[in-house]
């Protein structure tokens, strides 16, 4: 992987990589990708992908309110709140 690919990947992951770290990150990620590339030699022509080991499907339930409102408790552990809302830097001018 080259530097621009790493920079693009870091942006997709919303991570910041310092310029001096990029080469090392590129080497290590390339090594991991070389490991997983062993999969490419595998014949999976007629194989269906597997998401759940027991091929379970999503259970449904009645559309009823089951969770209590715990807004205050959840806001209490947030880094910054105001008037019952999460506070973030200005997004729209």
């Amino acid at each position: 992987m080259d530097r621009s690919e790493i920079e693009k990947l870091a942006h997709l992951a919303r991570l910041e990589i310092r310029p001096e770290e990029i080469d090392e990150v590129a080497t290590r990620i390339s090594n991991v990708l070389a490991l997983v590339d062993q999969l490419q030699a595998l014949d999976t022509g007629n194989v269906a992908p597997m998401a759940h080991p027991l091929d379970a499907v999503q259970r449904l339930r009645a559309d009823e309110v089951s969770e209590p409102n715990r807004r205050d408790e959840f806001l209490a552990i947030a880094p910054a709140t105001e008037n019952g809302l999460y506070l973030v830097p200005k997004v729209i001018d």
């Binding site: 991570l15 991991v32 997983v36 999976t44 269906a48 992908p49």
Partner: peptide, 27 residues
């Protein structure tokens, strides 16, 4: 590192080659 590898495997153009392939290998 794992987040970035995961983003790569799921990113446009690579999904079938990595994630879908691995799910088939899993079966």
């Amino acid at each position: 590192r794992r987040i970035m590898v995961g983003c790569y495997a799921l990113s446009a153009g690579y999904y079938d080659a990595y994630y879908a392939k691995a799910q088939k290998a899993r079966r």
